[in-house]
Amino acid sequence: MDLFAEAIAWIFSTDTQSGSLPLSEAIATHLAFTVVSVLIAAVIAVPAGWLVGHTGRGREIAVGLSGAARAVPSFGLVLLLVLVFGVTHKVGASTTAFVLLAIPPILAGAYSGVEAVERRIVDGARAVGMTSSQVLGKVEIPLGLPLLIGGLRSATLQVVATVTLAGYVGSWGLGFYIVQGIQIRDFAQILGAALVIVVLAVLLDLLFALAERAVVPRGVRAGRDGR
């Protein structure tokens, strides 16, 4: 347990705050990579997923994509893109990798949310004269939000973990401390950085857990809690 004390000491030491990579900067970069990548992925995947869920077209592709994506090793993808883009474009290459990894879970959340809306509800909406886009906008999207947020949640966790691995290609983010710590055999630094990463990941996850609850429409929640 001594190591934990040393790790905590590392987190709060002045060296860590003001070294070549200050801790606050590492956290900020880590978060910035995560937020930007997930946002870009969402802009692409959310509308696409809604359309797939609404029309049923391209469903096979979307399902196959989100299944196969799990098999792609994220660390390998980052290194591959950095080499392909060239080492002078590490930020762009890494971000591209993060976006690619974030798209499948968001896509899955968007289309499965729309698909999970009961057929009879959609049928009722059409029967009273909603246009196709009104059905999507007024019924399928609001009722599918919890699953969409679930998809964003998985994507965010995936990206947080991958940004950590990207510490191997650049002196940025919290992963760099671990990669550097391994080289210089500084286990306090490794554990300290790991603890910060865990706290960051858990906080983000908690945020999404709360959001997931908040977007359950009130009428649906009322039914779930019983009368």
């Binding site: 947080v160 286990f187 790991a194 603890l195 990941a201």
Partner: peptide, 23 residues
């Protein structure tokens, strides 16, 4: 849910001091 949240590289770092194994 919490365990799944922990990024892999961080988990590698957490286990050795907790379990007394080599990093």
């Amino acid at each position: 849910g919490l365990l799944y949240t922990i990024p892999s590289l961080a988990l590698f770092a957490l286990l050795p001091p907790l379990l007394g194994i080599s990093f």
